[in-house]
Design a protein around this nucleic acid. Structure first.
Length: 258
DNA sequence: ATGGCTTTAAAATAAAGA
């Protein structure tokens, strides 16, 4: 069973790429980030034609997450994180599907540093940690997957110096990410690529794709109950090179069925 | 480059992204 994540950077602009990726790679579950549409604009019918059922949490203009499942509708557990009632960003959607608890996340970018956006990022990470500890306490097979907007280690970026001032690799961001792993969650891509060098994002600017100037910010974290079912994981890198591509490539984990 | 693209929203620029 393959579960994938794709920051698509605008579902309206990306539909041709998104549909062909679903048809060609056929994940059992696809978690989407940055759909950038309000709920009423979500193209559920287009996914239905391919056999995918969806739940989504949209917002006008930016953010927005969705979970698609092949032949079955995800059972929504919650949308949004607790702890900040005035926060209306659509960044968190959690559901049960195929016996796995799946949280699809779009963690705040946090630039510029310092500033209110970086403060929001760090608060959001602590709110996420609170929820992940609750999920872990349920002792269910669980996967938290999506765009974490954190470069965990220097070997996860083409040039640590070039990104040194960026919110994605500040020590506070990395420490908050490390605390998630410290609670028992496993970073699938990191486990299978201990030497780093795996990218999931290439900027649109400055020929970053052509020069392979990327970094790893899309992650899949497995609960202890799921970690021993991981058989493979990877990045669908070629999709970054297609016409009208997202600036992220899809990431996926292959899990043994129970 | 305090922004070299790109998307959205909306009507010419501006916000947001990473």
């Amino acid at each position: 069973m393959k579960i994938a994540s794709f920051n698509i950077n605008g579902i309206k602009a990306r539909m041709p790429r998104l549909l062909e990726w679903l048809e060609e790679t056929r994940p059992a579950v696809a978690c989407l980030q940055e759909i950038k549409t309000q709920d009423e604009g979500f193209p559920a019918d287009e996914f239905h034609k391919l056999g995918y059922h969806a739940i989504w949490h949209g917002q006008k203009g930016f953010n927005g997450v969705a979970i698609l499942a092949d032949g079955s509708t995800p059972v929504e557990i919650r949308r949004g994180l607790e702890g900040e009632p005035e926060d209306e960003h659509a960044r968190y959607l959690e559901a049960d599907i195929f016996g796995v608890r799946i949280a699809c996340i779009y963690l705040p970018n946090g630039n510029p540093v310092p500033g209110p956006k970086f403060d929001y990022k760090l608060r959001w990470m602590e709110r996420l940690r609170t929820r992940m500890r609750e999920i872990a306490a349920e002792e269910v097979p669980a996967l938290v997957i999506g765009d974490f907007n954190v470069i965990p280690f220097d070997h996860d970026v083409w040039s640590p110096a070039a990104m040194a001032d960026d919110a994605l690799m500040q020590p506070q961001s990395r420490d908050a990410y490390a605390r998630l792993l410290g609670d028992g969650w496993s970073d699938a891509l990191a486990l299978h690529n201990p030497n780093g060098g795996v990218w999931t994002f290439w900027d649109y600017q400055a020929g970053a794709w052509q020069r392979d100037h990327g970094f790893r910010i899309d992650h899949a974290l497995l609960s202890p109950e799921l970690a021993d079912r991981l058989v493979a994981c990877g990045v669908d890198k070629a999709y970054r090179g297609r016409e009208k591509a997202s600036d992220h490539a899809p990431v996926w984990v292959q899990l043994r069925r129970d």
